[in-house]
């Protein structure tokens, strides 16, 4: 059978992709968690500071998304831009070796309503 033109290239590229992904997984593990703001006051300054404080204990990168908006989860000024009121859905993205632990801890903090009235 005649090989499809270029198939050997895509096969090689495929192998390279697998290799690359393996490397990425080891060095740049990405964990995504969806959370909902539970507390009545929303993500105001005090919860933001709690979040940033906790995020900064992990060496991994932490990003927080609301729709198209993405901010640095370690920057209080950027976090305030989320304007996340009660019921707002956010995506937490952690990238790094400890991404799992960071995402889990941060998700738990948000879902607990930051110890505030729900």
């Amino acid at each position: 059978m005649k090989p499809r033109p270029g198939s050997h290239i895509s096969a090689a590229a495929g192998r390279w992709k697998v290799l690359q992904d393996t490397v990425e997984q080891q060095t740049n593990k990405e964990v995504l968690r969806q959370v909902v703001i539970r507390n009545r006051q929303g993500l105001h300054a005090r919860p933001v500071m709690q979040f940033v404080d906790l995020a900064n204990r992990f060496p991994c990168e932490v990003q927080v998304r609301k729709g198209k908006l993405q901010v640095d989860g370690k920057s209080p000024m950027e976090m305030m831009l989320l304007e996340a009121t009660q019921g707002t859905v956010l995506q937490l993205v952690a990238v790094g070796d400890d991404a799992d632990q960071a995402a889990t801890a941060l998700a738990k903090l948000v879902e607990s309503g930051f110890g505030e009235e729900m």
């Binding site: 009545r40 006051q41 929303g42 993500l43 105001h44 300054a45 000024m77 950027e78 305030m80 831009l81 989320l82 304007e83 996340a84 009121t85 009660q86």
Partner: peptide, 15 residues
Amino acid sequence: PDKHLEAMENLFRHL
């Protein structure tokens, strides 16, 4: 609380 967050968001967008 929502209006407060809106004001803070506006403020921090500039800050």
